[in-house]
Every structure is written in C-alpha cells, then in structure tokens.
Design a protein around this nucleic acid. Structure first.
Lengths: 256, 256
DNA sequence: CGACTGCTTGAAGTAGATCAAGACGTGTGG
DNA sequence: CCACACGTCTTGATCTACTTCAAGCAGTCG
C-alpha cells in the first residue's frame, strides 16, 4: 500500500551548466534568467530523481523546498481524515511547485511517474528571487495564472456534470501537453500517466464513474482509449460538451 | 431583473489623509504602508460607493481596476453559458480584490450589500507596488493565503457532503468576521448578508438543499437562525461535522 | 393592498455513489 | 513455461443524497 521509495539525489551544480541544456526551461520560471543567474540557480539547486509513488512533500507540513519539474508528472493532493482525497493539480514538466504554485501550508506532493526535478531550498530560492525583479515578476505572473486555473477548477467541481468534467479534463491536459511537446503539436494524443483513481480524485468523482464515462466517450467515438493515454477523435464535440453546450442530452445515438 | 445601479464616486485623495482613519487598514494591504506612502496611495485612489447589486467588474473582461473593500460585502463569481454559476469567493471589509486576490482574466464582481471601496487603476497600483518591496511582499503573501483558501474550497466542492459544506462555510465566515470585528471577539454570531442563492452557488448546491440543511442544523440546535445571520450554538459540533467527523465511527483499522 | 422576491417545505426523479463481480494485465516464483 | 497473487480497470445492479418540480409563506415596496 504505502510506496516507500526513496529519492536518489545527486548534486550537479557547478558543472558545465546543466540548466542551459534543460529541455523544459523555456516553459518554466527559469526562462527569465540569463546565463549568469542560471549558473547561480544551478549552484543553489540539486537535481533529484524520484521513482513513481515517492513523496516529495507530506501533507500538513509546509515543504521547506520548492521543485521545478524536469521530467515526469507529480500530483498535489489534500485529503480528509477519513481518506477522502482531492487532487489539487498535476505538475507536468516545466511546472514549478511550491511558491506561486500550490503548496502554502500543506498539500501532499507525490510522483505519479518516475520523475526528475530541480530542488531548491525554499529559503534560498526566495532570497534569490527578491534580488531579481525579472524572476519575482515571473513568479507573480505564474501565481495569477495558477489562481485563474484553480478558479476554473472550482466551477468545474461545483457545477459541472461527470461528462463535462471529463471532457474538460481531457482538453485541459491536451493543451498543457501540447505546450510542452511542441514537436507533436498536431497530435491529438493526450498522455494520461495518472491512474483512474487520480483522475477521479481530481474531478470529484469515483473511479467507476470515470471509467464509465470514458467508455461512453469511446463508444461515441469522441476519444480512442489506449493504455496511459487517449486520442481525441472529436475535439470540437468534446469542447462543446465541456462548456455545457448540449445540456442534459448526451446520448449520441449510440444507445444500449 | 437586472439591477443597474450605478456607483457614486467621489475623489477624496489629498484631503487630511482618509487612509489614516480607515477602519479596515490593519487587515488589508495598506497596513504595510507608512504615512508617506499612504498619502500617495490616497492620491492614486478614489473612494467609491456601490449600492447592493452593482457590478464592480464584468465577467470575461479583465478589470482595469483593483479594489480595496472598506465596508460591505462583494461576491466574485464565474458562470457558464447556460446560467450555472459558481461563486469563487466573498470579499469582506479589508479584502483586496484584483491582484493577489481573484480576478485575472475574468470573474464577475458584484456588490452583495451596499459597499464602499478604494479603487485604484490596476496599472497605477502595480507601478506603485514594484517600487515598494514591503507592499510587493505583502501582496505575494496574500496570494499565498488566497491560494491556500481556494485549495480548501476545492476539497470542499469535490469531496464534502452538503452538511459538511454548510458547516465549513459557517465556521469559515465566522472566523473571517471575527478577524475584522475584534470588538465582538466572543460573539458566536455570523453575519450572512448574502442570500441563500449566493451560499448555494458558493458551495456547489441548490438553494433548496442549503435551506433544508440550515433547517436541520437549527432543529439540532447547532445554529440559531436570524435574518442575515446565524448564531453558532455548538461550534465544536459544527467543527466535527465539517471535517467529516460523523461518518462510520470507529471502524477497524483498515489502513497502515 | 396586491405583486414581487426570497425562504422554506414537500413529493418525485436522477446523476452519480456504492456494492459486487468479472476482465485484464503484470510481476513473482516454482 | 505456467500458476498464482495482486492491483487496476471495466461492467452491472442497486441505492441514496441531492436535484428538480411545485407549492406555500413571510417580508418588502410600490
């Protein structure tokens, strides 16, 4: 039950500048740093490898560290004493966890897949940030984006039906992945490395409902299901569904 | 139907320093400003009176202004094309709307009661902020708090039952009001100036369910209902209810 | 005083939860 | 290689918490 994998860390600061070759730099906070500052950041951070299931931070304790995801996917979750869990968000490559992002006093952070991240001491990172208006502004901007995203999530959780939730989720993830992997910009494929349980806890549903809704989507040829992902076969129909375009009448002819 | 009340604005900058006497200053962003900066802020802002129902900002358009609530209550809401609405939050006296708070690209902002606010041009306010580390830090801190609050709301909307939602809401509002009106620190009274509809849209429920749940609480002597408010008669029971204390007592230790 | 609007209460309906098997891998060990 | 256990995903049957529909009721305001 409890996956107790321990992270493998290896300091890599001071090398020939690991950040310069960072594949996700353009999408993250580090984009606004010049070569000099990148060097400083590299010295301040350590590259850490987390196996799937590892905990980067425990719920309740404010993490003393901030993370910059290089590869893999993490989930931020908050849960209730009786086990009910709400996933606050998924952190994809390039995402920054801990400051602007979500984790003020306590959100559990766990690796969904094997992942690598740049880890800074929160304190040191903040100290660096206050010196650099560029970076501070970037963080402020990220906080705004974050806030907006989480508001959408409020609307989704409070007012959308199961189908609308799942459709929104697929489109949302598709957009996020596409931003990262510009190579396959045209691809209608959405990687879904997280399990059904995670999706359910993200959308405020049960696994069964998620599974059933996926099946219904597949039967209506809205999506093609494959292990760890989905192909969006009718993105515009999904879009209409997501925004409540066809309220209440979801049956696309394919009944029984 | 459409309440089209227009705000009454009157510039008051430059007077004998209206901010110094501001009753909510200690709770808001302005707390970190000294007399000189307060004067500058006063010159930058105008005091505006909004009647209940007035719109401070429309959904979809990024508001070009930021608001500092002096008195009264506002609601931030986002809604779907078919009318379903989710209230993102309520702004109480001392709350700051627009920057750290919620309103990046578009949340409708409406006055729940008659209210007064200090209104800044977003641009001018930001310009002032970047010059003042104190203020910027305060805003950053506020953004963190905001983010944390909204995460709680995600958990509430996604995983809590109607009773748990309402109990949480009452306790949450009680805490917030108490922080403002230090005078009545001991009071178990919670002002609820917003209507049932607003509460329902905040909690992801219907008016009927909110009303029924209130009635049930009142019958169980958990709360005493009065117009525009409630007395918390058994705050600890409510607290237990809010955190999911009641379901399946004891139970065999299923987890490790 | 009657129209309006917001709150409450009741009865009926339903989306999604819960309970309960099966199907499908996937890894382990013989 | 198979046999077995284990976890995730799917599917079906039933149940229920909340919604929807439909009145009543109490302030409020012209």
């Amino acid at each position: 039950m409890t996956i107790n994998a321990s992270p493998v860390s290896f300091a890599e600061g001071g090398g020939s500048g690991p950040c310069l070759g960072c594949l996700v730099r353009a999408h993250g906070v580090c984009d606004c740093l010049d070569a000099t500052d990148l060097k400083i950041a590299a010295d301040l951070s350590r590259r850490v490898v987390y196996p799937a299931g590892a905990a980067l931070a425990l719920e309740g304790l404010g993490a003393p560290q901030v993370h910059n995801v290089r590869s893999g996917v993490a989930r931020l979750a908050r849960s209730m004493p009786d086990g009910r869990r709400q996933i606050i968000g998924f952190a994809l490559p390039g995402d920054f966890i801990g400051l602007s992002a979500a984790n003020p006093p306590g959100c559990a952070i766990e690796a969904v897949t094997d992942m690598t991240a740049c880890v800074f001491s929160k304190h040191a990172f903040e100290a660096m940030a206050v010196q650099r208006p560029h970076l501070l502004l970037r963080l402020h901007h990220l906080a705004g984006t974050e806030l907006h995203a989480v508001q959408d999530q409020l609307l989704l959780l409070g007012r959308r039906t199961a189908s609308e939730k799942l459709a929104s989720f697929l489109l949302h993830m598709h957009r996020r992945w596409r931003r990262i992997a510009a190579t396959e910009a045209e691809s209608q494929f959405v990687p879904l490395p997280m399990g059904r349980r995670d999706i359910a806890d993200y959308l405020g549903l049960t696994v069964e409902t998620v599974s059933r809704t996926f099946t219904r989507f597949a039967r209506s040829s809205l999506v093609g299901l494959v292990p760890n992902g989905a192909h969006l076969l009718a993105a515009d129909d999904l879009q209409r569904l997501a925004s409540g375009g066809s309220p209440r009448a979801s049956g696309h002819g394919a009944d029984t």
